[in-house]
């Protein structure tokens, strides 16, 4: 399945684009997505934290991804 991942803040700068297309086997989890991204972009591993949002909610590591999901990487937030 092909996922389109929205990027913000420092993750957008690390990847160098506002969205990232990732090909994953069907039924892969958030954890597996993060492992693949860390291999491609080692600088992601230097962040204080890196969460994944699925359909506007923080997703647990074992959540399974689907092609129609709206997915985003959430680096450490700093609003306020």
């Amino acid at each position: 399945m092909n996922l389109s991942i929205a990027l913000f803040g420092i993750t957008r700068e690390i990847v160098g684009a506002p969205t990232l297309e990732v090909a994953l086997q069907p039924g892969q989890s958030v954890q597996q997505l993060l492992e693949q991204l860390h291999q491609t972009y080692p600088a992601l591993g230097e962040l204080r934290s890196l969460a994944v949002a699925v359909n506007n909610e923080y997703a647990p590591a074992d959540a399974l991804l689907q092609e129609r999901d709206e997915i985003a990487l959430i680096p450490p937030v700093s609003g306020g």
Binding site: F8, G9, I10, E13, E46, L47, R48, A53, Y58, A72, I74, P75, P76, V77, S78, G79, G80
Partner: peptide, 22 residues
């Protein structure tokens, strides 16, 4: 400040930093 996905980048006279990223 803990959960809402908003990010701030501080701009100094000699560069910028994403706050709390590292």
């Amino acid at each position: 400040k803990e959960v809402v996905p908003i990010w701030k980048k501080e701009e100094y006279e000699d560069g910028t930093v994403w706050v709390a990223a590292h």
